[in-house]
Design a protein around this nucleic acid. Sequence first.
DNA 1: ATTTTATGACTGGTCAGTCAGTCATATTTT
DNA 2: AAAATATGACTGACTGACCAGTCATAAAAT
Lengths: 193, 193
Amino acid sequence: MRAIRAAALDLFAQKGFSATRLDDVAAAAGVAKGTIYLYFPSKQDLLEAIVASTIGATLTQVEQAIAASPAPASELLRLMGRAMALGVQDPERRQVLHLVLSEGARFPAIAQFYHREIISRGMSLIRAIIAKGLGSGEFISDEPARFPQLFIAPALVAAIWSVVFARIEPLDANAMMEAHVELLLRALTGRTA
Amino acid sequence: MRAIRAAALDLFAQKGFSATRLDDVAAAAGVAKGTIYLYFPSKQDLLEAIVASTIGATLTQVEQAIAASPAPASELLRLMGRAMALGVQDPERRQVLHLVLSEGARFPAIAQFYHREIISRGMSLIRAIIAKGLGSGEFISDEPARFPQLFIAPALVAAIWSVVFARIEPLDANAMMEAHVELLLRALTGRTA
DNA sequence: ATTTTATGACTGGTCAGTCAGTCATATTTT
DNA sequence: AAAATATGACTGACTGACCAGTCATAAAAT
């Protein structure tokens, strides 16, 4: 079952959902096609299960670390940036993200699920950090609280870039995320580097 | 021919490339399926033609406006931000971008083409503006010149968001892009808003 | 021996791409 | 100017391959 999901994710990411044959998924997973249908009612359910299974406790850890930390908001933002850079580095999460963005328009259940479990929680975290920084007087601007997407955007782009453009022009996601966070902190705190 | 491309773009964007039947494209375009093959050797060629046809002179205008303008670099960045927000607003360009990001990994020709004609040129423009601002002493930081993706990212996210998550949580792309540019300018100039 | 789990040949339907033929219009002939 | 002929854009029924999902049968587990 785990093998089926892994094989399917690889193939969906590589060839796209529609263009992937379940015969190939079965072969790659080392089972017969019928076996897939023992665990997943349909191809679409398999897709949804893949997305659901990668959600896990990923964000929960970060949420707790940030809720518990007494560090200043700027440090929390750096932490968040690093967590996102790491998350995007993982091939599985990267593939799932790409899959969600590629097929999400056609499978609303997937878009909704991913939004609720990842996007929305990530944005709440960012809002919470900004609120903390504003409360302590550390930050002087609230744009990223109004548009947490501004903080997330580079991570999304890094993930997509690695799938679509990496062969044409490589991108150092870690360095970019670090530059992003420092840039943002400068704008937020008003301090010059 | 124009009608075929338009219909195909709509359907590709809506159902994905693989899942779109050429019979449906023909019906939507008001022609017979055979007619499609008079103009496009294969389904894939049709896809490539769609991407190629939306490139047009889009960026050329912006490039010239920016090259000619005597305005300070910060004003040029605002101009660029507005141009990108506008570009992302246009449903056709939005669909093409989504198509490129969705299918680009599978069709390297498309990824390469889009990168060369849009991404790479946009990044050059940003680098040029930052260089100008650094030269004049207006800017004090060069991160976005090292990672022009940081400037582009919110526009990409706005486009993807509108396709995948808009129904779940709407996003005001214009307001976000404006917030982004102002935030970035604060970091670049060191001035407090 | 019975239940649970797995298999893979098969089916019914789908779809990219083909091609023999149509017909409106243009050209040539009378 | 009327008839005869040629052109090629367009059509849509057809084909061959392909594939999601099924199910009768087999293997493994209990």
